[in-house]
Design a protein around this nucleic acid. Structure first.
Lengths: 246, 246
DNA sequence: CTTCCGGGTTGATTTAGGTCAAGGCGGCTC
DNA sequence: GAGCCGCCTTGACCTAAATCAACCCGGAAG
């Protein structure tokens, strides 16, 4: 098994290899991954994958933010996932995409050609294993979100979204848990509304309300200061600390 | 590799072995599964697993219906999954349960002790593979449900739920697709409400409305006749046929 | 047979959030 | 600087669903 040191050298800045799949790869497996790997860039607003399209790659987000959305014929739209750097995209064993994937900011993706990746997966148990783990995480996240969508008030929904982004930010940057936090909202009000099952007006109103009540502070439209994370999580109605302050 | 014939003999009536995991098991793997396997019975209303509890088994539903639910401190409750016969329960690699699992009817589960099952999983790639596939299916279902919860009206929600149950019934019994169908509602109005993010009164009202409009017919409270599945799916607002009438 | 009780229905009223509409603000081009 | 455009905010009003409340129905217990 390779040491972390070597992996860093071999893998460059590709998060799928660092974090998601290759922490335990042998050199020849790394070699295979290297051969089937390529990068793709997308501009903000660009659709990366259309729902129903044939997908010939899997991969992970290197930088930027993308969303998974489902849209009804009449235009109603629900975001079903938020892709941040290191998140995996793709459905090994499936041919078609199930959702639209849209770049919210400029996005760099690290892609692997699908067939060879699937072959590698069958021959390398720990990759399948890791993928199962990641899928279970996504399933948990989706189910947590079902509670938000089905049972929370608009105010709680906003607080939940901010909590989740703050949490992701926190673990991503490996900062120590703090009570005061600053986050950069990567979403327009409309995108937030599509995530939360609200209208953009309601999102705007509730953000104003949280600000008035001192739960958050705003600097411009997108820069959110959270004076006390626990206060925010309280507003979100979560019973747990969401892994924040252990 | 064993022929299907042999598997049938070996596996008895345990769906995890038939459908979920063992379609490609070697005899010695079947032997291992047999050794770590046991059955458990639950009565209607009984909680099978409490959220947060340590889980020492994985398994699948043999008969009956169970629900996955999340509950907030103030009692608000959201169902995040519906377990029908052949559905898998458990999170390989995770120790704690993430949700309450409650038996809605009497339930028989086929369980496998968790550690040995996980060991078998690492040594048997196709089991991990199959599990990944099942988890991806669940993820798709969860995300489909997010659209229902976030963006559909009460009437559409009811129609969606009936469609899904009808669809499951259909594939489970391997019937040919028909337009006329009869389903046995396995849920109380309250459980339906918890699934749909509604109140039980609204569920009741919308069911009455669908009946008045001839989309469904009722025999007693729980027996639902669907004269025309496509009409129902139309009410659900789904663009696809949901794999019904291919 | 009567009572009770859990599930279900239906009506009256309230309310959270949607809808419609009028600006505000910051950045961009011309 | 003027005008424009995308994004955001705020207000007035409306409506779908929640809430509160009464009642129905069928099956089990006494």
């Amino acid at each position: 098994m390779m040491a972390t040191q070597t992996i860093s050298q071999e893998c460059g800045d590709c998060p799928i290899r660092h974090r998601a799949v290759c922490a335990r790869c042998e050199p020849d497996e790394l070699q295979t991954l290297e051969e089937i790997k390529y990068y793709r860039n997308f501009q903000a607003g660009q659709t990366i994958i259309w729902s129903g399209d044939r997908m010939d790659f899997v991969g992970s987000v290197v930088s930027g933010i993308a969303t998974l959305t489902q849209t009804m014929e009449d235009g109603r739209c629900q975001m079903v996932g938020l892709l941040l750097p290191s998140d995996f995209v793709g459905r090994p064993g499936r041919d078609g995409a199930a959702y639209d994937v849209v770049a919210t900011t400029d996005v760099v993706m690290c892609c692997f050609r699908k067939r060879p990746f699937e072959d590698l997966m069958t021959s390398t148990p720990h990759i399948a294993h890791r993928l199962l783990e990641m899928t279970l995480d996504e399933l948990d996240a989706a189910r947590e979100w079902m509670l938000v969508l089905g049972r929370k008030t608009a105010r709680e929904k906003i607080a939940s979204l901010l909590s989740i982004i703050a949490r992701r930010d926190n673990t991503l940057n490996k900062r120590n848990a703090k009570t005061r936090m600053v986050i950069d909202l990567p979403l327009t009000r409309e995108a937030m509304a599509d995530y939360l099952g609200l209208t953009l007006e309601t999102v705007s109103r509730q953000i104003s309300a949280l600000k008035k009540d001192g739960v958050i502070e705003l600097e411009g439209k997108r820069h959110v200061i959270i004076p006390d994370i626990r206060r925010l999580m309280d507003e979100a109605g979560d019973d747990s600390d969401g892994g924040f302050l252990v």
